[in-house]
């Protein structure tokens, strides 16, 4: 047993100097949350490319697979990015769970306090706990799938996943969790670290407006994939061939 372990075991870890770890953990919780929330905004724009057509989404997909840099698509590049996101996601979950009510008594106390206070920021925190808890499972499942089968991301691949694989209810719940959790989280980061109380009303309005904006895009995107998946159900599993290539193939046969 190391000396440090013994000191902690004896309950003397705070003496004579407080550890630097609480500072590091607090900063890491905020930083990882900021990264994930901003990543989810970008992510939404990429997946929403389906609303502009299958070819646009195909182009975005191939861009991230390095097709326009190397001349060949490497879906494993997507796995690398997903791997980084998994590490940050797990880190954030580990740090954030420290704040959860960890016993029924704590939960009951907070819940009664929330009902009694009727205070928006206090209530929104509970929503963050609920949505954060749900994402332990939902986001993990999604990230695992993207890590292992990155080649399945594409207009038909993603649409088949929504419709034929029946994952649209899963993504509907995940969408709501991400948008509420991330939106509230970004607002909280702003009031936690810098912006003064005078800007709070504005920040709160901005928060709801952004959440609304991303939810509208999110629902439209989800619907677009479901519609495409429904139309493509007879050819489940067939990869998408972009219009330009399919025309040039047709051209060679003429």
């Amino acid at each position: 047993m190391s000396n440090d372990t013994l000191i902690i075991q004896a309950g003397l870890s705070d003496k004579p100097r407080k550890s630097k770890w609480p500072a590091r953990l607090d900063l890491a919780q905020s930083a990882s949350g900021l990264f994930l929330a901003l990543f989810m905004w970008l992510h939404m724009f990429f997946v929403a490319s389906i609303c502009l057509g299958e070819d646009v989404m195909w182009t975005v997909t191939k861009f991230f697979e390095g097709y326009y840099f190397f001349g060949t698509a490497y879906p494993r590049l997507v796995s690398v990015v997903v791997g980084v996101v998994i590490v940050i996601f797990v880190t954030h979950a580990l740090l954030a769970v420290r704040k959860f009510p960890i016993s029924y008594k704590q939960y009951k106390t907070y819940h009664a306090h929330m009902k009694s206070m009727r205070h928006e920021d206090t209530t929104l925190w509970m929503w963050q706990v609920y949505t954060g808890f749900a994402m332990f499972f939902l986001a993990s499942a999604h990230l695992y799938q993207m890590f292992v089968w990155p080649q399945e991301i594409g207009p038909y691949g993603s649409a088949d996943r929504m419709w034929s694989d029946m994952l649209w209810p899963f993504y509907l719940v995940l969408l709501l969790c991400v948008e509420f959790h991330g939106g509230i989280g970004l607002y909280r980061l702003a009031v936690k670290w810098c912006w003064p109380n005078a800007t709070r009303d504005f920040l709160k309005k901005l928060k709801w407006a952004t959440t609304g904006f991303f939810l509208i895009i999110g629902f439209a995107t989800l619907f677009a994939y479901m519609k495409l998946g429904y139309e493509h159900r007879a050819n489940y599993g067939e990869p998408y061939v972009p219009t330009s290539i399919s025309q040039s193939i047709e051209g060679t046969y003429k």
């Binding site: 705070d14 100097r17 407080k18 550890s19 609480p22 500072a23 953990l25 607090d26 420290r98 704040k99 206070m117 205070h119 920021d121 206090t122 925190w125 909280r188 009031v191 936690k192 109380n197 709070r200």
Partner: peptide
């Protein structure tokens, strides 16, 4: 930092702002 540099001090604050 010795006084408030942990989760019983400033790092415990979850910015719920009921206080404010």
């Amino acid at each position: 930092y010795e006084l408030v540099g942990d989760d019983t001090g400033v790092f415990g604050c979850m910015s719920l702002l009921g206080c404010q």
